[in-house]
Design a protein around this nucleic acid. Sequence first.
DNA 1: CGTACCTTTGACGGCTGTCAAAGGAAGTGG
DNA 2: CCACTTCCTTTGACAGCCGTCAAAGGTACG
Lengths: 262, 262
Amino acid sequence: MTPSPYFQAAMSRYFALGDDDCRLLGQLERRTASADKDRVLWALGARIQNLFILQSGWACTVRDTGEGERQIIELLLPGDIVGLREFTFRRHGSEARMISAGSVSTFTHQQIVDIVAASTSLAVALFATIGRQEALLTERMLVTLHRSARVQVSHFVLETYLRLSKLQSVDPGRMPFPISQRLLGQILGLSPVHINRTLTALERDGVLEKHRAHVVIHDPGRLRDEADFDDDYLSDRVDGLSTRLAELREGAASSAVSQSGS
Amino acid sequence: MTPSPYFQAAMSRYFALGDDDCRLLGQLERRTASADKDRVLWALGARIQNLFILQSGWACTVRDTGEGERQIIELLLPGDIVGLREFTFRRHGSEARMISAGSVSTFTHQQIVDIVAASTSLAVALFATIGRQEALLTERMLVTLHRSARVQVSHFVLETYLRLSKLQSVDPGRMPFPISQRLLGQILGLSPVHINRTLTALERDGVLEKHRAHVVIHDPGRLRDEADFDDDYLSDRVDGLSTRLAELREGAASSAVSQSGS
DNA sequence: CGTACCTTTGACGGCTGTCAAAGGAAGTGG
DNA sequence: CCACTTCCTTTGACAGCCGTCAAAGGTACG
């Protein structure tokens, strides 16, 4: 069985997972295939069917705004699960596509239901996952609505740096960043022209340099100041639920659930 | 026992719920108390402890942007569950407060775990709920990033009208709307001054009139055009999972999940 | 070697924020 | 029932960030 370093690691960040849980998670990563750049994982309006786990490469979900523009909703990095937001809908309200070449595991939305049925711990871990993905979205909205393009770009680069750093050691002097200026504009809701001006200014001021497929962060501390960054929302800490899950496993569940006592 | 028309109705929109499921849901609404306007349900940074179901009145979750401004993240209407986004975190990343006087039911985050453990149907229904709340957020972000203030205001009023209409019959000529212009600005990320200008223009053009605590929608169809509104994201349709849930209840689960069967 | 996409730069305009001040409307205490 | 206070609404003047349009230069890829 191919181990899944990223996704299982992500899920076990929340609680220690048992052998059964790991086995269940492993089933989501049985079918893994490579995916070219621009490969569409699902199209807008398509019936909900499969979910994905990104094993390598970057991906995103996108919406057209009806005025010829596109807005990136979420940026997905290796280890991220793709489609959890939408698996209870009938049809997709977005498109998902690869940003760079990589590989993805595919499984059905019904497998999610099976996992929720089989393991309360994993069900709660899935809630934790969806909550953290939504926290990224919320933070992005706050920044895009209230901050200048300069802060937005700095914030996004730093956020991505921190997300990547959870997966592997990242050299700030050469961080992978396969995002064109046009795409960066679609992530932040800014025009490519203005993205370019902003990047030029950030480079002039010695904050960062964006190259074709990587970014140079001269000084992470300086970037944090530029971005006015508060990383609370990236926390993996889950509190107070582990004990409850343990109680449930020990059979204290039935009485507690029947009258919700204690 | 006080019945919970809104929340149980909301949850049963997704699938037909059994008696056990309804009983479990009922436990979330045992402790109900009135809440004044501006009552804080939780403060920023507080430890996660309770969740709420709004029985009457409107509420919201808010974030400070660090520059003295406030951004409303979600607007909560009667029947909405408050805190599902964050219940797996250690501390709240937002504040929740009542916008108008009303009443709320209170329960603990551990009760959510108990429900997830006790009923796969309800667990999936909770995923559906969180997904729909997130769809509201996503749509708001798209509109705020790419549309004019005029479209934003129209869009928000129409969205709220449609959400309210799911709960009860709403007279477009006198829709409850206890939202000040300042608050509307905090929802859309616009200054109160510009909100005022936009409302004045919309009234001049006969689209809508906002009064202190209600809105007059002269013509919903006209408003829909102004807002360029597509209501796909408000859909309650859940497809393909009901049959899977039924199979699980009938014990067909074990084979599908291989050996982890219960 | 050509084509397509990405990056860069300049000029111009508009939507929206900020500042400031005055005019209601609602609630409170006397 | 009346003064007072507070918050909300309204309006004007001005500035600035960012979008649009346009065109040229770079870079990868077939």
